[in-house]
Design a protein around this nucleic acid. Sequence first.
DNA 1: ACACAATGCAGCC
DNA 2: TGGCTGCCCTTGTG
Length: 571
Amino acid sequence: MMTRRRSSAFPKVVIERDTDSEESSSSDDEGEDGPEPETSEEEEEEEEKEQEGGEGLPERGSGVGKEETLVDVKKKGKAPITISLKKVCKVCKKPGHEAGFKGATYIDCPMKPCFLCKMPGHTTMACPHRVASEHGVAPAPHRNTQNPVEYVFERQLIPRTRQCKPAYVIPNQVSCAVIRYHSRRVTCLEFHPRNNNLLLSGDKKGQLGVWDFDKVSEKVVYGTIHSCILNNMRFNPTNDGMIYSSSSDGTISYTDLETGISSSLMNLNPDGWQGPSSWRMLYGMDVNAERGLVLVADTAGLLYLVDTRSNNETGRAVLIHKKGSKVVGLHCNPVQPDLLLSCGNDHFARIWDMRKLEAGGSLYNLTHKRVVNSAYFSPISGTKILTTAQDNRLRIWDSIFGDMDSPSREIVHSHDFNRHLTPFRAEWDPKDSSETLAVVGRYISENFNGTALHPIDFIDTGTGQLVAEVMDPNITTISPVNKLHPRDDVLASGSSRSLFIWRPKEKSDFVEKKEERKILVCGKAEKKKPGKNVGNESEDDSDCDGFNSKGKRSKFSKKELICKSKRKVKH
DNA sequence: ACACAATGCAGCC
DNA sequence: TGGCTGCCCTTGTG
């Protein structure tokens, strides 16, 4: 049975009066078929329907779920109006086709460019980049403009380094725990640097959750640290009982995790709300341990430095991105404390020398086609860069000492949804010594046995291949926030209001990178409805370890795990 | 079952 | 430049 995800509103009825003037809307009618008037089979069908319907106007809320348009067929003179009904595409408003969910599969509007790679001429379903078993995530064609050194590096050095470094491993099977206590969407996650089971989570309301995911009863939520979106958290490198957090309320808070007592290190809106034009928010934040600095950046393009010893702002704010544009992220190089990476709404990621911070003084400007959601140095050597941009591409620069003019690879990946959800950010696996594995949530859904699911993807940034995808048939929401544990084999995901902890079922249950990608499906679908939202998380967390929405212990049943099965998705 | 809002950005004038 | 509109797979609430 085909179930629409959501049937459309009342049928939109457009009645065009018969006039002598040329109406542009009537030429929209047939698209390529030129100026009307042959009546297609479809139209005839619809006409019959209309006659049955008596008045010709569909009843309000008739539940048909199709948008229909009454199109008058023009005739010369004052001939009676002939009316035909047509299906109209919700996306482009043109007749002849429909876009939307058919069961758990989304049908693209053929008039629009591919939803995934943004190129015209094909739909998402036919996109060569489509995340499907036959294709995988294809890397963009590598430019053939390598210089000889780079060529030698690629051909000789990289294979050798791979021999001495173990390839990353991925779990063979996973289990999942769910916890709900955020009342707004999750915006950031951070693992404790020493305590392996401690996870911090921030939400859109500014609440900070501290929880032990082995003993889920031990959780604390601090609700008064910030008044709106908690965008970033960092542990104090010299005292891991304290965290810095930046928020859209324009403040940096310095919070004791035991007591929840916090002090404000900075406030960009000391006079309170004076309207949206003057309100400033802090998005990017990082800590530079060597220099004893907290770095934050605001929605006006400015970078601020706070001395961690005095807890006071130091120096002057520096314009690091286009004036008036939001700086989305900051990352200090893990090896070279003088290097800073920033990214912003001006479509750039920029590399800075901390010793020469001044407007326009960046070392490199990495161009993107859209807003850059995140930019990270690789976690161990700090020589690679991974960015996530809203043009549905992950970009990798293989070496900051090499050619920085254009990325070494672009990987098409669906993550371009920017409102209503926390922006997607691809992150490195901090445990992967080869610095190739990255994790990122996926926006576009995949029809998994009749359920539209949004997996979390593990991508080999060296090849662009999708090596594993994690999903649970009972988790139908999108998980834009993902964090891999710095030491353990744990993935934490943040969705709308829930947190998920994914772990390999068995400690030793790992496989090295293989040609075929792993599909890690956790649990079985609760066969409720064959539509998209099978097993809505809001009502169905009973099958998961953890808590239900009231914070009580829910039924503790081990999930049954399916995996390594070849995917059976019908499109 | 459906309407609606919260919400960020791009493109237009 | 700034204000306005529109937007293709959201998600929870009323």
